[in-house]
Amino acid sequence: MSALSEVLRRDLVLAWREGGTVGVALGFYLIVVTMLPLGLGPDLKLLSRIAPGVLWVALLLAALLSLGRLFETDLEDGSLEVMATGPVPLEAVAAAKSLAHWLTTGLPLAVLAPILGLLLNLEPDAYAVLVATMLAGTPAISFIGAIGAALTVRTRRGGLLLALLMLPLFVPTLIFGISAIGAALTSSDAFGPSFLILSAISLASVALAPLAAAAALRLQLQ
């Protein structure tokens, strides 16, 4: 257990010292959300209606941006092969690193989202539920995304490939996230089920995705 908390701590320290990645993801989120009203025109009603969808889709793209580096540096400097001979299984290492990614990307993006909601004239009732769905849904993005990061860690044009591989897998998270917000705004009964399924997808990803990520990493080390 101490080995895992050590991996987590090291990744957080590195993210803090290197700073760039988190900042770039947040900046990217901001600029994508800003571009949309510029392209669509400042129709506040329209913006208000599409705001949850825009905020979710832009969040997926911003999170993807930093996923590519998840295992890359550890593979390049040889840390990963030492971890593979370590006292904890590689599955647990992959899970610790995915958790670090969520803490340094998913969490800050979810916290930034309501501020960007102001730019899009998001309905006042939607702020709390927006953050709630993002907090419930973003773990799936970090953990499933880790599979993609592990698969593409050695490829040329890794970033673009990662988007092609991973975005289809994020469809359920996106749909249930948006669906929960929509249901909450129309006070429909569907909010409960949508939110629960969204959380279930995240839990299942946390439990299962590290198995696939570790399998891919072992193959990369061969």
Binding site: I144, L169, P172, A212
Partner: peptide, 17 residues
């Protein structure tokens, strides 16, 4: 590995759509 991950997620995608 990717195709096995895919086949696990395909029913969830279908369900969500």
């Amino acid at each position: 590995v990717l195709s096995i991950v895919g086949i696990v997620i395909v029913p969830v995608i279908k369900f969500s759509v």
